[in-house]
Amino acid sequence: MMMIIKKMIFILLVLVSGNQLVAQKYFTKKGEVSFFSHAPMEDIKAVSNTGSSVLDAANGKLQWAVLIKSFAFTKALMQEHFNENYMESTQFPKAKFTGTIDNMTAIDLKKDGEYNAQVSGVLEIHGKEKKIATNAKFLVAKGKIIATSVFKVYLADYGIEIPSVVKDKIAKEVEISIKSNYELLDKM
C-alpha cells in the first residue's frame, strides 16, 4: 500500500515537472513595431526594431515591451515632438502589452503552417492602460516563427492630447503594426 502511494506521488511529480519541461517559451528582442497615422496635412510614421516579447506556448501568455525613444522618424523635429510633447517618454519610457493568445491550443508552433490567433490583454501607452483585443497571425515555416498583427488605437484612450493648432496634422487614430521572429528561449 505504502509503495503504491509512493509510486503514485512519484508519477504525479514526474508528470507535473515533465509538463514544465515541455512548456516552451519563445522570445524576440528585435521585434518590429511601427505606427502610421494619416491626417489631412501630414502622414506620420515611425518604426522601432528593438521591441522585446516573450510568448509562453504552454498557456498562451504573451508580453511585449518597446522603448518609446527607440522610434525613428523621417523628420527629426517630429521625433523630438513625439518624445517631448506627446509621449513624454522621459516620464513614460515604455509601451507594454500583457495578455494572452486565447486560442493557443489551436496553434502548434512546432508544426509548419499559418495560424490565426486571437489576442487579448492590456495595452499600456503613455502610462495609461486599456484592454484591447485583436487578431494576429503566426507563420511557422522550417522552424522559423513569424508573428504579425495590425491594430488601431485611439490617442484619446491613452491621454495623449492633440492641441487644436496641429489637429490637421495629427490623426486621432493610429495604426500599429507588429512583426517579430520568435526564437526558442533557452533559459536553463
Binding site: L13, V16, F27, K29, V54, L55, Q63, K187
Partner: peptide, 16 residues
C-alpha cells in the same frame, strides 16, 4: 516546481 511557477507569475519579459 515551486520555483518555476513563482517565476512564471512574474514578468515573462524578465526571462530575457
Amino acid at each position: 516546481i515551486i520555483s518555476v511557477s513563482a517565476q512564471e507569475e512574474d514578468d515573462l519579459l524578465s526571462l530575457l
